[in-house]
Design a protein around this nucleic acid. Sequence first.
DNA 1: GGTGTCACG
DNA 2: ACGTACGTGACACCA
Length: 893
Amino acid sequence: MDKLILIDGNSIIYRAFFAMPPLTNSSGLHTNAVYGFTNMLLRLIQEEKPTHILVAFDAGKVTFRHEGYQEYKGGRDKTPPELSEQFPLMRELLESFGISWFELAGYEADDIIGTLSKQGEDSGREVLVVTGDKDMLQVVSDKVTVALTRKGISEVEPYGPKEIEEKYGLSPLQIIDLKGLMGDASDNIPGVPGIGEKTALKLLHQFGSVEEVLARTDELKGKMKENLVNHSDDAVMSKRLATIFREVPVERSWEDMTFNGIQGDTAAPMLRKLEFKSLIERLSLISGDGNNENDGSNEKDQAAAASEVEVTVVDSESVSELNELLPTIESMYLESYGENPHHANIMGLILSTGERHFYLSDQFLLDKSQAEAVIKWLGDGNYPKRGYDLHRTDLVLHWHGIPFAGASHDIELAAYLLDPTNNDQTVSALAEKYGLAHVASDDDVYGKGAKFKVPDTGTLSKHLAHKIEAITKIIPLQQGDLKKNEMNALFFDLEMPLSRILADMEKQGVSVDRESLVELGKEFEVQINKLVSQIYDIAGQEFNLNSPKQLGEILFDKLGMPVVKKTKTGYSTDAEVLEKLAPYNPIVQYILEYRQLAKLQSTYVEGLLKEIRPETGKVHTYFRQTVAATGRLSSQFPNLQNIPIRLEEGRKIRKVFVPSEEGWFMLAADYSQIELRVLADISGDKGLQEAFLHDMDIHTKTAMKVFGVSAEDVDSNMRRSAKAVNFGIVYGISDYGLSQNLNITRKEAAKFIDQYFEAFQGVREYMDSIVKEARRDGYVKTLLERRRYLPEINASNFNLRSFAERTAMNTPIQGTAADIIKLAMVLMDKALYDHQLKSRMLLQVHDELVFEVPPEELELMTKLVPETMEKALSLSVPLKSEVSSGVNWYETK
DNA sequence: GGTGTCACG
DNA sequence: ACGTACGTGACACCA
């Protein structure tokens, strides 16, 4: 069966250009749009396996649509030169791939595609049109599918007649009527004023076509009718402009469009010229060895091989075969249940030599006599382990009594470093990203929620085999990417070693004094009950205090208090609002106190109690190393990075975190002002550096410089303002944000900021240059080359762009601070080992490390920890760490 | 599952 | 003119 793919070259290349970060090859040629296009093309070829392909382009500026309507496509921004220079490259690349393309003066790519899709359809062939232009939906039929790009060009959404009906309730041809009524700003097609998509759809559902709407305007009323009557000509013309012309004299025969697979001998040199290294690797996967064996059968073989992957289900007979191959295992993957690795059962394990895959069921793996050699291999650090989420693997195996060692390449962790904001880092998504054979998503194979079900061994082992094939292929590709981004040290010397250290901390856990916690809960309970009855009393009724909706009704409807702020669903009742309402009625203060205690009770008493392991009396958090966009860690099940400290009531919770051994101490050390010290270093601001070189109180020093007074004249208010400004600077300051924080006007906030930048000019220069850098590169970096891409830095939407700019300012600061404490953790782990200490590292809280320490090591640790933290990284200003210890976490202050 | 709220750095 | 401080996770509602 023939299958033709028609691609709207202009549409795709435009979208690729704006979706991709700027990219140039070593001779300065811009290549990002071509790269995006090629990436998409390779994926299409792999997934759709077309027999024919043609790429259509617009030719020249003037088309037949300009006859009678000069303004067509008027008001468009000029094509940026960075994009223009990529069109010739595009054509050259297509020719090198053996793919035909076509353009014709006076016609748009749309019309060429419309014509060829009609010809294909008429001769009974299957056609797939790829474009970003919704207008194209009008050519959809049983034979013609239109794939629209989404999210830039990284995804396409196929539309057949059914999908159009579901989404719009229209037939494909009615798409033209839709455009006629609503117009299209990007093509400067006017449509009818006041009619947008919603109204247009309503009209079409009622009348069916533009002509019918115009003929029956007497059935309508109001402004809409008026507009339709007054602009009926516009509607008719707009419909005509939106109609794709399907009789273009196309000089391409069916044979001309034949696609015989990518011609490796010409395509590879072209990709090399463009310096698309990762695409060259993909090319070899698609076109075999890159020679001329690219007939259809080869591709079919590959597809078949992918679905019929061979996997050995290990049993008492085949285990000896695996045992012999253990030293040659390339990669591994452990599948387990649920989110919390400390409570996860094993579903299965797959090991791969690259050629052969071995699946072990949980029963087999947990049978220590049968799986003896495999278990030994897992725990032997001399055998490197490459795989996916080895941190989780380590924990899951640990709780099943199986030691794990030797993690050397974790593709999830590497994927995180290569793009920390990409939140879909599943094997399936990574396989797609690297253009590998499709790997089904876990949800598709296992089902989710109530439908979750482990499939039979055959299905499961094959799914895992597909995963391990992808993992094995991704490893070398990532190694190339990491090297290119100069992230080898970050990955191999910092993050990979850290993942083992985190696993050790998590296995160790923190002891919780359950009885004290229960007692504390009882105290809270008494106070909460008292507050609740006082609140109901004043309200004159009982209601659900935990429901912001019901609370809002009581405060604003029943008690008639002024509405300070609204949320998208109703009245806002957050603490900021309640503070403002406090003078009106004593109920407000009670509610604030209730909120505080209810939070402590539900999250920190009840929540924490649920997480204590009864056997050990410990909580075992799970530090996540691949979620925070800045490079920080996060903590789950329970979150031990947000235990209360600011208010005394809550701070008492810290008393229940105790050493796990009799007579030991808790010891905590935190970096003092690490983010501002990092800022002093990377901005090079002399004043800021000097302040830290003399170890001054930074907020007082800031107040002195900003307000132009001497140290003695800084009052508490000035210091408070300066502190807020310092925070603002770290977050990527805006006058609005600062005004909110300090409860002052925006003007006053703007003045503070201005004075700050006058006083610290180096900081101003840094903020300007980092935003410029982000615009130029599409990403920002930390001192250790950790990256964060900021695709929205060039957005036309003010909000998106502003957000990206603040992120550009904040991420190098927060991220470098994260780098530093991670370095300190690796050093501390080594120091504990080198000194053969019994002390254990338990927690990291962004700028703080918490240990439990036997009494005989307390003196040593009190020196060793801050010293180690301070020498983690050498900056132009000193790092400072403050240490303290006590019988529980509360006392380390 | 989304929203509001609030705990931390 | 635009409308937000940066980064997380947990809990309770409510549709």
